[in-house]
Simulated scan of single mutants.
Amino acid sequence: MNVGVFGRTVELDAGRVAVSEAELRAQVGEYVAGDRRTFDVSVALPDGFVGDVMAEMRAIPYGETRTYGELADALDTAPVAVGQACGKNPVPLVVPCHRVVGAESLGGYSAGDGPALKRRLIEHERNAGD
């Protein structure tokens, strides 16, 4: 399913979440409006390494970021492998891969229009309390 986020389209695999598409759209809308910091949905994580990386991403608090290297250290792997797994996240935004950044750059983003949306999501979360 596709959802609108800050004028961009983000594709979410609705089959990975345990809520209706209408409920998921409502929660995305609340997030964009600044009224929601977490998604109240159960996510079926893929088996294997991608699922392991997604579990680490889910633990990153709203408004904070972690580097690919920090996640790699936690998973005893390489930052490049973490980045590749982030790109396979079937539910970006719900599992916040936008909160994973490079040590010296923003890094990539597979949703919307890529890094521009990633930057907007990070700014949105950092400014939510203002």
Rank of each mutant, 00 (worst) to 15 (best):
V10C: 04
D47N: 06
T38G: 00
K88T: 06
A81P: 05
P96D: 10
F39C: 00
E56Y: 07
A85S: 09
V19T: 13
A103E: 15
K88Y: 09
D35A: 12
A78L: 13
P61G: 03
V10T: 08
M57I: 07
D52F: 03
E123N: 12
V10F: 04
D130M: 06
V94P: 05
E23A: 14
G15N: 11
V100C: 09
L75I: 04
L12N: 13
L93M: 03
P79K: 11
A44Q: 14
E21L: 06
A59R: 14
A33F: 01
Y68Q: 15
F49I: 00
F49R: 04
V19C: 13
V10W: 04
D35M: 01
G29W: 01
D113A: 00
N127T: 15
N127I: 10
N89C: 07
D13E: 11
G83R: 07
P79N: 13
E21W: 10
A128S: 14
A103P: 03
V53T: 05
D73Y: 01
A18K: 13
A74M: 07
A111H: 05
V100G: 08
H124R: 03
N2Y: 08
A78Y: 13
R37I: 07
A33H: 00
L71I: 15
V19W: 09
A26N: 11
D113L: 00
G114A: 00
V19A: 08
A128K: 03
E11Y: 09
Q27Y: 03
A55E: 14
I122S: 10
T67S: 14
G63M: 01
G107M: 01
V82E: 10
V19G: 08
R126N: 09
T9P: 04
P61L: 06
E104M: 06
T38R: 11
A74D: 15
V101Q: 10
R119L: 15
A81G: 05
R58H: 12
E70Y: 07
G7P: 10
E11Q: 10
V50W: 02
A14L: 14
G34Q: 00
C86S: 10
G69F: 03
G87K: 01
V94N: 05
L121P: 06
A103C: 05
R37G: 10
A44K: 12
Y31E: 02
L12H: 12
D40W: 00
G29L: 00
G48Y: 05
V3Q: 01
G69A: 14
I122R: 12
D76Q: 12
D130H: 11
D47W: 01
P115H: 09
H98K: 04
G4D: 12
R99M: 08
Y62T: 04
E104V: 14
G129R: 13
Q84I: 12
V95I: 14
V3H: 02
G29E: 04
C97M: 06
N2I: 08
L93I: 15
Y68M: 15
G87A: 09
